[in-house]
Nucleic acid binder design. Sequence first.
DNA 1: CGTACTAGTTATAACTTCTAACATACGCAT
DNA 2: ATGCGTATGTTAGAAGTTATAACTAGTACG
Lengths: 229, 229
Amino acid sequence: MDGRAHAGGPGLRGRFRAQVRDEIKQVALRQLADGGPQALSLNAVAKVLGVSGPALYRYFANRDALLTDLVVDAYRDLAAACEAATAGAWKDPADRLRALAKAYRAWALEEPHRYRLLFRAPLYGYDAHSEPLVQASQIAMNVAVEVLEGIAAEGPVAGGELEAPLAEWAAGRGMPGAAAVIAVRATTLWARLHGLVSLEIEGNFASMGLDPTPLYEGEITNLLTTPPA
Amino acid sequence: MDGRAHAGGPGLRGRFRAQVRDEIKQVALRQLADGGPQALSLNAVAKVLGVSGPALYRYFANRDALLTDLVVDAYRDLAAACEAATAGAWKDPADRLRALAKAYRAWALEEPHRYRLLFRAPLYGYDAHSEPLVQASQIAMNVAVEVLEGIAAEGPVAGGELEAPLAEWAAGRGMPGAAAVIAVRATTLWARLHGLVSLEIEGNFASMGLDPTPLYEGEITNLLTTPPA
DNA sequence: CGTACTAGTTATAACTTCTAACATACGCAT
DNA sequence: ATGCGTATGTTAGAAGTTATAACTAGTACG
């Protein structure tokens, strides 16, 4: 309880700590890229970094903590990529939605191991969505919501059974203005994109010898012409 | 190279072998149910079965071989459940499609660990879809194709860019009659179901506090009213 | 009835995660 | 400038994993 600065603070030591954490995650990502989550070994990471085994436990409580951190980072990265692709001014909001879908797919294809990480129950023993993970996943949803809001604010105001819980959810996220319709469309969009991307990166389309690009276009067009709600 | 019967044949020894393999898989599934693929340990399985460690290697080449077997079984089970739910005579083929979606979702919710197994790259080092796995996954597709064939044989004959490869794929599967439209709809159906189911079993909907049932209904209805192609 | 093959055993190597006990070195406040 | 205290790294080791090797016992089949 003395006035000394601890490692969590912004002191020199804290900065070094953050830097090492990043280095560890970088190496871990490389190991994860070839071999999947199974192949991520703290020991191997330590060896690459030139330190010996248990040193890493000063930076991450355990292997799962490192994985969870990677998941959160991945959610942020995906959301950032989608935001970047949809930023700026757009004549046709429909084009903006298409750009969002394209960016989502592109990110997943570029780093399939990280995308896979997102949807694997992060800690099989724990609650599937512990707090930080829920928050991280919502970042991605926010982008979808924002893009869809620009498309059809004039859409049907919805009277479906989903309205109540979705309106509540929207309110809880600080966007009480967002109608339930938007939320329905956002989740539908997310589910469609995830379905296609997931099948694509697992090779299910490739094994059938077909390029799924038209399927993506079809789903987006469908969402634009006959939106749910 | 003598005339003796080997363990693979239908002899007494072969039957015993098959039975033990099944027992192993059963115990493995139980371990997999709580703890995920990470928690599946051959040693632990052996201990449960009352045999000691390396004995299991007489029945499965390695841990991944066992996992692959479980994946194939899961594909067959899922397909069987969908077939059973759509068997018999149906007045309205649309209802049959709804029954298919319901069965697909129900199976996944009943055994999320097995569903997760399906879409996890089975052997990270190998080709994502080695031959037996591709075959197994096609079983599930066949059900979707068959159901969709009954719905709108009169649908638009499709002139999209997907027609050529899909027709080829259909022909290669011994259903040259199936138009490319059907294949497009089948893959779209599969992707939509998988997207929703995947988000549901990972808790993404639950974390938002909403029941995705209407989303399923919406997607199926949409597929019926404005089918892709 | 004997042979050849199978199914089990133990021992062992090379890994893994993670804890404990200990040494060092460095930043911070005095 | 100097020393305290913390953070960081080290080695040792426990308990677990996959997987191989060498060996033993049993049994189905010709």
